[in-house]
């Protein structure tokens, strides 16, 4: 009995030792990968940061309204945020790479999934950014046009445009990420419908003068002169 126990123990310890001996180099490799990954990720971060600074990314993000958003959320600047994000993605990537070296069966799959997910993450980030940029640009364009056309609720109009644009780009982001597709679709549908409905009502009430004016201008040409600004600028 004792012998058996000893033998089992010996065997177990031997196996453990063997297993340990088997895993140790992998572990070391993993650690090395993780360390090298950290260094590379850090370098990557520095590189990205300087590239972003060189390309005046901050101005672009300011234009898109992202900076303001971040400030409100007490987050660091967009350049810093993006470079940190890159750093973490890169390092995590390297760590996962190292983990996969360990050869743990279940983990392998997750790791590969993570790597498959990476491009999508990037695409969705780009979409989000461009979407925010477009939302900001168009909402400003609409605001200016509306103000210059002397429309009543120009601020509302511009905000709606911004909301629609943002929702649209967010829904695209989720679509790309493949997260809660159904929910997002329904949520987007509801939000979009609500905004449109609100706009329709707003236009109906606020725009009836405008519509009348438009029709008058079209149909009764004689009245047109009075409505125009009589100052000729040049």
């Amino acid at each position: 009995m004792r012998e058996i126990i000893v033998a089992e123990l010996t065997q177990a310890s031997q196996e453990l030792a063997r297993g340990f001996a088997h895993y140790l180099p992998r572990m070391i490799v993993m650690l090395i990968i993780a360390f090298v990954g950290w260094v590379l990720a850090y370098l990557f971060k520095v590189l990205v940061r300087s590239i972003l600074r060189l390309t005046r990314f901050s101005k672009l993000s300011e234009n898109s309204g992202a900076t303001q958003l971040l400030k409100q959320a007490a987050l660091p600047s967009s350049t810093e945020l993006l470079s940190r994000f890159i750093f973490w993605v890169a390092w995590v990537g390297f760590i996962l790479l190292g983990v996969s070296v360990l050869g743990i069966v279940g983990l392998q799959e997750y790791v590969s999934r993570f790597f498959l997910f990476l491009p999508r993450l990037f695409v969705s980030l780009v979409i989000l950014f461009l979407g925010l940029l477009a939302a900001s640009f168009f909402s400003r364009a609409v605001l200016l046009a509306a103000v210059n056309a002397n429309l009543r609720s120009s601020r509302l109009l511009s905000i709606s445009i911004r909301v629609i644009n943002s929702i649209f780009s967010l829904s695209m982001v989720f679509e790309v990420l493949g997260v809660a597709e159904q929910t997002m679709l329904i949520a987007f549908g509801i939000a979009f419908g609500a905004v449109m409905f609100g706009l329709a009502i707003a236009f109906g009430i606020g725009g009836k003068d405008l519509a009348r004016e438009f029709l008058e201008r079209r149909l009764v040409t004689g009245k047109r002169e009075e409505k125009e600004d009589e100052l000729s600028p040049l």
């Binding site: 605001l143 103000v147 002397n150 120009s154």
Partner: peptide
Amino acid sequence: EMFATGVAEL
């Protein structure tokens, strides 16, 4: 009015 609206809205 157009001036005031402009200043406020923009």
